[in-house]
Computed example of a mutant assay.
Amino acid sequence: MTVENATARADLAATDDIGWAVRLLAATPTHEHRDPELLRRWARAADAYGAALAPVECTARIVESEGGLARGLLARYTSRPATVELYTDTIALAERVVDARGWRDWYPPGSVRAAALAHEAVHVHLHHGPARAALKRALGHSALRLGRLRVPGHVAGAEEVAAHAYARTVCGLGRSPLLLTAAVAAEADGAPTPPPTRDARREN
């Protein structure tokens, strides 16, 4: 789970979950000149796919360490050997950001770690099974067309969007972890993290 570099705004929560997913895709290499509406369509498809996934067990080894703030990460999955590394310093900062912004209704105590683990569990799931091909089909992007033959194409960043949506759903979060990672990035960069407006909280 990456802590995305995001410019601090007066109210990060004013951007909805799909909006943050579009931003993630737009900031991903190969998408610099994509049509914003196409990115939004992909974001919606990846979000829906992740939210609909049945719960998956994390089969990778789980380790905890510090150093996530320096790397800009809450957690990461590596495949050789299959390991999920949770960064306790970034998770602790995320919990402080939740309290400072008044977002505890969205991210209950302990949910940051749980969401990070759930997010990486989806990466494990997509890496080792047929789910990655299913995600490609859900996105509807074609790498090649020859008559009726269509080869589903890879959409960089879509797996991240799906993993965030899955974590939001299985952990019962009020908002996507994407919002929280943006706030953590702003805090790590030394920017203030003012609480969300009442209107923003009511809308979500």
Score class of each variant (00 low, 15 high):
P109Q: 09
R80Q: 15
H125W: 07
S65C: 12
A100S: 13
D17W: 05
R76I: 10
G72Q: 05
H128V: 13
Y107G: 06
D89W: 01
A131E: 12
A75D: 02
S79F: 12
P81E: 08
R80P: 06
H33S: 13
V98D: 06
R80S: 15
S79M: 08
A43G: 00
A45R: 12
P130Q: 08
D11T: 03
A75S: 14
E4R: 15
R101C: 14
T90S: 15
A75E: 09
A14I: 10
A121R: 04
D16I: 05
V124P: 04
I62E: 05
A131M: 07
Y49T: 05
A116W: 09
R132G: 08
A43C: 09
D105C: 06
A21R: 01
E32N: 09
Y77S: 00
T83A: 06
E4A: 15
H125P: 02
D11H: 07
T83G: 10
L69C: 10
V122L: 02
V63Y: 00
L74G: 12
T78W: 11
A75M: 07
A92V: 02
T78Y: 11
I91L: 14
R71E: 14
H33I: 14
A118S: 14
V63H: 04
E4P: 14
W20P: 09
E66R: 14
L73Q: 13
A94E: 07
R34Q: 14
T15H: 10
A46Y: 08
L25G: 05
W106K: 05
G67M: 00
R113G: 01
N5A: 15
R71P: 04
R44W: 03
A6L: 12
E57D: 15
A82N: 06
G72K: 04
T28W: 00
L53I: 09
V3L: 15
R23V: 13
T28R: 06
P81Y: 04
H119A: 12
T88Y: 11
Y87G: 02
R71W: 07
T28K: 03
H123G: 01
A54Q: 09
V84Y: 03
S65M: 12
V97H: 05
T30N: 01
V84E: 03
V112C: 04
E32M: 06
E85K: 05
H31E: 05
R101T: 14
A48R: 11
A92C: 01
R113H: 02
